[in-house]
Design a protein around this nucleic acid. Structure first.
Length: 423
RNA sequence: GUGAUUGUAGCUCAGCUGGUUAGAGCGCCUGACUGUGACUCAGGAGGUCGCCGGUUCGAACCCGGUCAGUCACCCCA
């Protein structure tokens, strides 16, 4: 016997009713982004591999070992998108949108990374995120952060915290890099193997190492925030002042570094301790050089990406997951003839937007009531032989356990009775 | 990629130091109840014990491999 085919490792099937909850969450996310003036952008699920090599950075783990890359029949190197920012920039450049001034986009959908699955980490995770182009002003960061914060706040998530840092621009980061290197080099033998390996290539990564051996060295290491050039320091101060004015709480956390090459100046994360080792639910910041590095004009940019699965995990940990509401109607017919009469009524109700469930298996009344329970129907529409004779049907409130009788063809009367029951 | 741990019915799990036809609860189906959801009672369906191989007279149990889940490292949303 052939072995059964399973969903690929690190992926999952979203089934009802979880899929209904997901759809509701996505709808609320769209609403929030829309209320900030962002428009939805949908880009292809695969792109030229080179886009990510240039956009995300050749030295990053994502590009080095996590991409789903293939060669198509036209010998083109293609990659399933591992993130959204590079594709969005590509689309904006392709359609010359930057000629029209500032642009605001949000996106929602799956990304693909070949990673070892664990809690809050999948091979096809889903992200919602925004991109704001054309503003070098600190208000841009604050708008994007406020949007992310609104997403979190609108769901009453208690233990989410905003972490903020500045990693400077090309000029002051290079100077800091040198300062950090000359501090860490003498200590190299005391660092973890990973950090020793990373030291020359990306010394900033040593700062957020979890290895206790690195903690000691990092403790006295020079701080980026103290090495910011004047414009960067001023900019960071302005971001903080605006956040304070909006009463958005945050911690300055010098260890926030972000893994992608394109970030400049402000970086931020929203973290929660209900996520295990994957504590970040949202990560973002400013990336003023990305558009130019992909061959476009010099356009400053700010954005974030939020993990939808992780967001759901926080929601359920907070007990904020919405309960499935009782909704719709169970159409209960006894026998083929009654079914034939009830079917068009069900259709009429559905045309009016009422959910109607119906069973065709000739089950008895009690069995059909059980189905109504399983469907979490709010009301029942019962048509048996008695009713058929009298030309009536029973509209039953499944919560109050009360019922009224209405003429079979009186669709208005049925609708009114259902409305009274809150269907 | 590294390490740890788990895999028995649709779900949650039991199954002693390897020993006849593998169990429970919930769920599902049928009936008691010529037409009202719960409860009760009586029946019933459903498992090649993740898969492959090995050891053994004999494997759900021991060994190896493999697939998948989970957790951590790493990385990140």
């Amino acid at each position: 016997m052939p072995s059964p085919i399973l969903a690929p490792r690190g992926t999952y099937d979203l089934l009802p009713p979880a899929s209904t909850l997901r759809a509701g969450l996505e709808a609320r996310m769209r609403d929030v982004a829309t209320s900030f003036g962002y428009g939805e952008i949908r880009t292809p699920i695969f792109e030229a591999t080179e886009l990510f090599e240039r956009g995300v950075g050749e030295g990053t783990d994502i590009v080095e070992k996590e991409m789903y890359t293939f060669v198509d029949k036209g010998e083109r190197r293609m990659t399933l998108r591992p993130e959204f920012t590079a594709p969005v920039v590509r689309a904006a450049l392709e359609h010359k949108l930057f000629a029209a001034g500032p642009q605001r986009f949000f996106y929602l959908g799956p990304i693909f990374r070949y990673e070892r699955p664990q809690k809050g980490r999948y091979r096809q995770p889903h992200q919602v995120g925004v991109e704001c182009y054309g503003y070098s002003e600190p208000e841009a960061e604050v708008e994007v952060i406020a949007l992310a914060w609104q997403l979190v706040r609108s769901h009453k998530i208690a233990d989410a915290r905003l972490q903020l840092n500045s990693i400077g621009d090309a000029a002051c980061r290079d100077r800091y890099r040198e300062a950090l290197l000359s501090f860490l080099r003498p200590l190299a033998p005391t660092l973890s193997e990973d950090s020793q390996r990373r030291l020359e290539r990306n010394p900033l990564r040593v700062l957020d190492s979890k290895d206790p051996r690195d903690g000691e060295a990092v403790k006295n290491a020079p701080r980026m925030l103290e090495h910011l050039c004047d414009p960067c320091r001023e900019h960071f101060g302005a971001v903080r002042a605006l956040l304070d004015a909006l009463a958005i709480p945050y911690d300055v956390n010098p260890q926030i570094v972000r893994g992608l090459d394109y970030y400049t100046r402000t970086v931020f994360e929203i973290v929660s301790n209900s996520l295990g080792a994957q504590s970040t639910v949202c990560g973002g910041g400013r990336y003023d050089n990305l558009v130019a590095s992909l061959g476009g004009p010099s356009v400053p940019a700010v954005g974030f990406a939020m993990g939808i699965e992780r967001f759901e995990m926080i929601l359920s940990a907070a007990g904020a997951a919405p309960e499935a509401m009782r909704r719709g109607v169970q159409a209960i017919a006894l026998g083929v003839q009654a079914r034939a009469r009830l079917l068009p009524i069900a259709l009429r109700l559905r045309e009016r937007g009422t959910a109607v469930f119906m069973d065709f298996a000739d089950r008895k009344i009690p069995a059909q009531f059980k189905l109504a329970e399983r469907n979490a129907a709010r009301a029942g529409l019962i048509l048996g032989s008695d009713e058929l004779e009298k030309g009536e049907l029973v509209v039953r409130d499944l919560v109050e356990r009360s019922e009224v009788r209405v003429a079979i063809d009186d669709i208005e009367g049925i609708t009114t009775a259902l409305q009274r029951m809150g269907v």
